[in-house]
Design a protein around this nucleic acid. Structure first.
Length: 294
DNA sequence: GCGACAG
DNA sequence: ATCTTGTCGC
Protein backbone atom coordinates (compact mmCIF):
# COMPACT_ATOMS: atom_id res chain seq x y z
CA UNK A 1 0.00 0.00 0.00
CA UNK A 2 1.51 3.27 -1.09
CA UNK A 3 -0.28 5.58 1.24
CA UNK A 4 -3.39 6.43 3.13
CA UNK A 5 -6.69 7.68 1.86
CA UNK A 6 -6.65 11.37 2.58
CA UNK A 7 -9.92 12.43 1.12
CA UNK A 8 -13.03 10.84 2.54
CA UNK A 9 -15.23 12.64 0.10
CA UNK A 10 -15.99 10.03 -2.49
CA UNK A 11 -16.96 12.43 -5.21
CA UNK A 12 -15.89 11.13 -8.56
CA UNK A 13 -15.80 13.16 -11.76
CA UNK A 14 -19.30 13.46 -13.22
CA UNK A 15 -19.84 10.87 -15.91
CA UNK A 16 -16.60 9.12 -15.07
CA UNK A 17 -16.30 5.47 -15.86
CA UNK A 18 -17.18 3.84 -12.51
CA UNK A 19 -14.66 1.14 -13.23
CA UNK A 20 -11.88 3.69 -13.52
CA UNK A 21 -11.92 5.31 -10.12
CA UNK A 22 -9.96 8.21 -8.77
CA UNK A 23 -8.43 8.02 -5.31
CA UNK A 24 -6.46 10.62 -3.41
CA UNK A 25 -3.52 9.44 -1.38
CA UNK A 26 -0.74 10.89 0.74
CA UNK A 27 2.54 10.44 -1.09
CA UNK A 28 6.01 11.02 0.25
CA UNK A 29 8.53 10.13 -2.39
CA UNK A 30 10.99 12.13 -4.47
CA UNK A 31 11.71 14.78 -1.87
CA UNK A 32 8.04 15.62 -1.47
CA UNK A 33 6.27 15.12 1.81
CA UNK A 34 2.57 14.81 2.45
CA UNK A 35 1.56 15.63 -1.06
CA UNK A 36 -1.83 14.48 -2.23
CA UNK A 37 -1.48 12.12 -5.13
CA UNK A 38 -4.25 11.22 -7.46
CA UNK A 39 -4.34 7.59 -8.47
CA UNK A 40 -6.51 6.12 -11.19
CA UNK A 41 -7.45 2.52 -10.59
CA UNK A 42 -9.38 -0.05 -12.57
CA UNK A 43 -11.18 -2.89 -10.86
CA UNK A 44 -9.39 -5.98 -12.11
CA UNK A 45 -9.14 -9.61 -11.16
CA UNK A 46 -5.37 -9.51 -11.01
CA UNK A 47 -5.03 -8.43 -7.39
CA UNK A 48 -7.06 -8.16 -4.21
CA UNK A 49 -8.33 -4.73 -5.19
CA UNK A 50 -6.84 -2.80 -2.24
CA UNK A 51 -8.18 0.52 -3.45
CA UNK A 52 -11.74 -0.65 -3.82
CA UNK A 53 -11.47 -2.44 -0.47
CA UNK A 54 -10.43 0.85 1.07
CA UNK A 55 -13.35 2.62 -0.53
CA UNK A 56 -15.70 0.04 0.96
CA UNK A 57 -14.09 0.65 4.34
CA UNK A 58 -14.64 4.40 4.15
CA UNK A 59 -18.30 4.04 3.19
CA UNK A 60 -18.77 1.40 5.88
CA UNK A 61 -18.08 3.98 8.60
CA UNK A 62 -21.38 5.62 7.72
CA UNK A 63 -23.40 2.43 8.05
CA UNK A 64 -26.33 2.27 10.48
CA UNK A 65 -27.30 -1.27 11.45
CA UNK A 66 -30.26 -0.52 13.69
CA UNK A 67 -33.82 0.67 13.15
CA UNK A 68 -34.16 4.32 12.25
CA UNK A 69 -37.79 4.48 11.10
CA UNK A 70 -40.82 4.42 13.40
CA UNK A 71 -42.69 1.78 11.36
CA UNK A 72 -39.81 -0.63 11.89
CA UNK A 73 -40.63 -0.95 15.59
CA UNK A 74 -44.38 -1.47 15.15
CA UNK A 75 -45.47 -5.15 15.16
CA UNK A 76 -47.44 -5.09 11.87
CA UNK A 77 -45.16 -2.45 10.30
CA UNK A 78 -48.01 0.06 10.33
CA UNK A 79 -46.79 3.13 8.49
CA UNK A 80 -44.95 1.10 5.88
CA UNK A 81 -46.72 1.64 2.56
CA UNK A 82 -44.07 1.12 -0.12
CA UNK A 83 -41.35 -1.50 -0.39
CA UNK A 84 -38.89 -1.63 -3.28
CA UNK A 85 -36.85 -4.31 -4.99
CA UNK A 86 -33.90 -3.99 -7.36
CA UNK A 87 -32.14 -6.42 -9.66
CA UNK A 88 -30.00 -6.69 -12.77
CA UNK A 89 -30.51 -9.23 -15.53
CA UNK A 90 -27.62 -9.92 -17.84
CA UNK A 91 -27.51 -10.31 -21.59
CA UNK A 92 -26.09 -13.65 -22.59
CA UNK A 93 -22.81 -13.53 -24.48
CA UNK A 94 -22.35 -9.89 -23.53
CA UNK A 95 -20.82 -9.04 -20.20
CA UNK A 96 -21.26 -5.29 -20.52
CA UNK A 97 -25.02 -5.09 -21.17
CA UNK A 98 -27.75 -5.62 -18.62
CA UNK A 99 -31.21 -4.50 -17.62
CA UNK A 100 -31.47 -2.70 -14.29
CA UNK A 101 -34.86 -2.62 -12.64
CA UNK A 102 -36.43 -0.85 -9.70
CA UNK A 103 -39.86 -2.08 -8.67
CA UNK A 104 -42.03 -0.60 -5.94
CA UNK A 105 -44.80 -2.61 -4.30
CA UNK A 106 -47.58 -1.51 -2.00
CA UNK A 107 -47.37 -2.86 1.53
CA UNK A 108 -48.84 -5.09 2.80
CA UNK A 109 -50.77 -5.90 -0.41
CA UNK A 110 -47.61 -6.42 -2.48
CA UNK A 111 -49.11 -4.96 -5.67
CA UNK A 112 -46.71 -3.41 -8.17
CA UNK A 113 -47.22 0.37 -8.14
CA UNK A 114 -44.07 1.41 -10.01
CA UNK A 115 -41.79 -0.25 -12.52
CA UNK A 116 -38.60 1.02 -14.09
CA UNK A 117 -36.55 -1.17 -16.42
CA UNK A 118 -33.63 0.27 -18.32
CA UNK A 119 -30.86 -1.19 -20.46
CA UNK A 120 -27.49 -0.18 -19.04
CA UNK A 121 -23.81 -0.54 -19.86
CA UNK A 122 -21.67 -2.09 -17.16
CA UNK A 123 -18.20 -0.73 -16.53
CA UNK A 124 -16.83 -3.15 -13.95
CA UNK A 125 -16.39 -6.91 -14.11
CA UNK A 126 -17.98 -9.25 -11.61
CA UNK A 127 -15.54 -10.04 -8.85
CA UNK A 128 -16.76 -11.77 -5.70
CA UNK A 129 -16.64 -9.20 -2.91
CA UNK A 130 -16.97 -6.28 -5.32
CA UNK A 131 -20.40 -6.83 -6.84
CA UNK A 132 -21.47 -3.30 -5.91
CA UNK A 133 -18.91 -1.71 -8.22
CA UNK A 134 -20.63 -3.54 -11.08
CA UNK A 135 -24.28 -3.14 -10.14
CA UNK A 136 -24.74 -0.15 -7.87
CA UNK A 137 -24.20 2.74 -10.34
CA UNK A 138 -27.21 1.70 -12.48
CA UNK A 139 -29.35 1.20 -9.39
CA UNK A 140 -28.54 4.62 -8.00
CA UNK A 141 -29.55 6.06 -11.37
CA UNK A 142 -32.88 4.22 -11.15
CA UNK A 143 -33.53 5.68 -7.70
CA UNK A 144 -32.69 9.15 -9.03
CA UNK A 145 -35.16 8.70 -11.91
CA UNK A 146 -37.90 7.80 -9.46
CA UNK A 147 -37.07 10.79 -7.30
CA UNK A 148 -37.51 13.07 -10.30
CA UNK A 149 -40.47 11.27 -11.85
CA UNK A 150 -42.65 10.77 -8.78
CA UNK A 151 -40.95 11.07 -5.43
CA UNK A 152 -44.19 10.15 -3.65
CA UNK A 153 -43.57 6.58 -4.81
CA UNK A 154 -40.10 6.41 -3.24
CA UNK A 155 -39.87 3.11 -1.35
CA UNK A 156 -39.36 3.26 2.41
CA UNK A 157 -37.09 0.24 2.30
CA UNK A 158 -35.28 -1.53 -0.53
CA UNK A 159 -34.62 -5.26 -0.92
CA UNK A 160 -31.40 -5.96 -2.79
CA UNK A 161 -30.28 -9.13 -4.56
CA UNK A 162 -27.06 -10.00 -2.76
CA UNK A 163 -25.64 -9.46 0.70
CA UNK A 164 -25.36 -6.60 3.16
CA UNK A 165 -22.93 -6.94 6.06
CA UNK A 166 -22.61 -10.67 5.32
CA UNK A 167 -19.58 -9.90 3.23
CA UNK A 168 -15.79 -10.25 3.07
CA UNK A 169 -15.31 -6.77 4.53
CA UNK A 170 -18.76 -6.30 6.04
CA UNK A 171 -19.93 -4.08 3.21
CA UNK A 172 -21.88 -5.86 0.48
CA UNK A 173 -23.98 -4.42 -2.32
CA UNK A 174 -27.00 -3.82 -0.07
CA UNK A 175 -24.92 -1.66 2.28
CA UNK A 176 -23.34 0.15 -0.64
CA UNK A 177 -26.69 1.02 -2.19
CA UNK A 178 -28.05 2.06 1.21
CA UNK A 179 -25.21 4.50 1.81
CA UNK A 180 -25.37 5.96 -1.69
CA UNK A 181 -29.15 6.49 -1.59
CA UNK A 182 -29.72 7.03 2.11
CA UNK A 183 -32.56 4.48 1.98
CA UNK A 184 -32.99 1.59 4.43
CA UNK A 185 -31.83 -1.56 2.61
CA UNK A 186 -31.81 -5.32 3.20
CA UNK A 187 -29.60 -7.89 1.49
CA UNK A 188 -31.33 -11.05 0.29
CA UNK A 189 -29.01 -13.71 -1.13
CA UNK A 190 -29.94 -17.09 -2.55
CA UNK A 191 -26.61 -18.67 -1.62
CA UNK A 192 -24.49 -18.50 1.49
CA UNK A 193 -21.41 -16.38 0.99
CA UNK A 194 -18.70 -18.27 2.83
CA UNK A 195 -16.94 -15.57 4.82
CA UNK A 196 -15.70 -15.18 8.40
CA UNK A 197 -15.65 -18.94 8.94
CA UNK A 198 -19.20 -19.49 7.71
CA UNK A 199 -19.42 -22.57 5.52
CA UNK A 200 -22.14 -24.28 3.60
CA UNK A 201 -21.00 -27.56 5.07
CA UNK A 202 -22.70 -30.58 6.61
CA UNK A 203 -23.28 -28.72 9.85
CA UNK A 204 -24.89 -25.78 8.10
CA UNK A 205 -27.08 -27.96 5.93
CA UNK A 206 -28.08 -29.85 9.04
CA UNK A 207 -29.25 -26.65 10.70
CA UNK A 208 -31.14 -25.70 7.56
CA UNK A 209 -32.89 -29.05 7.59
CA UNK A 210 -34.19 -28.33 11.07
CA UNK A 211 -36.09 -25.29 9.84
CA UNK A 212 -39.62 -26.63 10.02
CA UNK A 213 -42.15 -24.05 8.97
CA UNK A 214 -42.14 -20.85 6.98
CA UNK A 215 -40.59 -18.09 9.03
CA UNK A 216 -38.19 -20.30 10.96
CA UNK A 217 -34.63 -19.01 10.86
CA UNK A 218 -31.27 -19.21 12.56
CA UNK A 219 -28.61 -16.57 12.97
CA UNK A 220 -25.30 -16.80 11.16
CA UNK A 221 -22.47 -16.14 13.58
CA UNK A 222 -19.02 -15.76 12.10
CA UNK A 223 -15.77 -16.85 13.69
CA UNK A 224 -15.31 -13.24 14.76
CA UNK A 225 -18.34 -13.61 17.00
CA UNK A 226 -20.36 -11.18 14.92
CA UNK A 227 -23.90 -12.02 13.89
CA UNK A 228 -23.68 -11.45 10.14
CA UNK A 229 -27.13 -12.48 9.01
CA UNK A 230 -29.83 -15.10 9.17
CA UNK A 231 -30.85 -18.18 7.19
CA UNK A 232 -34.62 -18.08 6.69
CA UNK A 233 -37.07 -20.70 5.49
CA UNK A 234 -39.06 -18.18 3.51
CA UNK A 235 -41.98 -20.26 2.26
CA UNK A 236 -43.60 -23.52 3.24
CA UNK A 237 -42.45 -25.29 0.09
CA UNK A 238 -38.88 -24.07 -0.05
CA UNK A 239 -36.21 -26.36 1.35
CA UNK A 240 -33.20 -24.17 0.73
CA UNK A 241 -33.14 -21.09 2.95
CA UNK A 242 -32.54 -17.52 1.83
CA UNK A 243 -29.81 -15.46 3.47
CA UNK A 244 -30.86 -12.16 5.01
CA UNK A 245 -28.40 -9.51 6.11
CA UNK A 246 -28.64 -5.88 7.13
CA UNK A 247 -27.91 -3.34 4.47
CA UNK A 248 -28.55 0.03 6.10
CA UNK A 249 -30.91 1.69 8.60
CA UNK A 250 -32.65 -1.47 9.83
CA UNK A 251 -31.91 -4.15 12.41
CA UNK A 252 -31.42 -7.79 11.49
CA UNK A 253 -34.40 -8.88 13.60
CA UNK A 254 -36.66 -6.40 11.82
CA UNK A 255 -35.19 -7.29 8.43
CA UNK A 256 -35.94 -10.99 8.88
CA UNK A 257 -39.56 -10.33 9.93
CA UNK A 258 -40.10 -7.87 7.10
CA UNK A 259 -38.62 -10.09 4.40
CA UNK A 260 -40.69 -13.03 5.58
CA UNK A 261 -43.82 -10.89 5.49
CA UNK A 262 -43.40 -10.37 1.75
CA UNK A 263 -42.60 -13.93 0.71
CA UNK A 264 -45.26 -15.61 -1.42
CA UNK A 265 -42.51 -17.85 -2.75
CA UNK A 266 -38.91 -18.48 -1.78
CA UNK A 267 -37.68 -15.13 -3.07
CA UNK A 268 -39.47 -12.12 -1.54
CA UNK A 269 -41.92 -10.40 -3.88
CA UNK A 270 -40.04 -7.10 -4.37
CA UNK A 271 -36.83 -8.71 -5.66
CA UNK A 272 -38.77 -11.49 -7.35
CA UNK A 273 -40.76 -8.96 -9.39
CA UNK A 274 -37.59 -7.00 -10.14
CA UNK A 275 -35.97 -10.21 -11.34
CA UNK A 276 -38.90 -11.32 -13.52
CA UNK A 277 -39.50 -7.92 -15.06
CA UNK A 278 -35.85 -7.11 -15.71
CA UNK A 279 -35.29 -10.48 -17.39
CA UNK A 280 -38.40 -9.97 -19.54
CA UNK A 281 -37.31 -6.49 -20.53
CA UNK A 282 -33.80 -7.66 -21.27
CA UNK A 283 -34.95 -10.43 -23.62
CA UNK A 284 -37.53 -8.22 -25.32
CA UNK A 285 -35.07 -5.38 -25.91
CA UNK A 286 -32.33 -7.70 -27.13
CA UNK A 287 -34.69 -9.32 -29.67
CA UNK A 288 -35.92 -5.95 -30.96
CA UNK A 289 -32.35 -4.95 -31.60
CA UNK A 290 -31.74 -8.11 -33.63
CA UNK A 291 -34.91 -7.71 -35.73
CA UNK A 292 -35.28 -4.05 -36.68
CA UNK A 293 -37.73 -4.82 -39.53
CA UNK A 294 -40.61 -4.94 -37.03
C1' DG B 1 -4.36 -29.66 -9.26
C1' DC B 2 -8.48 -28.35 -6.15
C1' DG B 3 -11.95 -25.74 -4.03
C1' DA B 4 -14.36 -21.15 -3.79
C1' DC B 5 -16.78 -17.81 -6.21
C1' DA B 6 -23.28 -12.70 -3.60
C1' DG B 7 -24.70 -11.57 -8.99
C1' DA C 1 -25.76 -14.14 -13.79
C1' DT C 2 -26.54 -17.67 -17.97
C1' DC C 3 -26.66 -22.35 -20.67
C1' DT C 4 -30.92 -26.13 -20.29
C1' DT C 5 -35.12 -31.53 -20.21
C1' DG C 6 -37.76 -33.70 -17.96
C1' DT C 7 -40.20 -34.69 -13.94
C1' DC C 8 -42.83 -34.57 -9.74
C1' DG C 9 -46.70 -32.42 -7.44
C1' DC C 10 -50.71 -29.44 -6.63
Amino acid sequence: MLGVVVSQQLEFPKGANPCLRQYNYIGGGGGFKNVVLTTLVYLTEEDDCPFHSREQGILKDRLITSNTETWQNIPDFHGLDRIGGVDLSYVKEDDTSACASLIVLSYPDLEVIYEDCQMVTLDAPYIAGFLAFREVPSLVEAVKRLQEKDSRLMPQVLLVDGNGVLHHRGFGVACHLGILTGLPTIGVAKNLLQVDGLENNESHRGQAKELQSSGDFFYLEGSSGNILGAALKSSQKSVKPIYISVGHKISLETAVKLVHSCCKYRVPEPTRQADIRSREFCVKTTNEKQMPQD
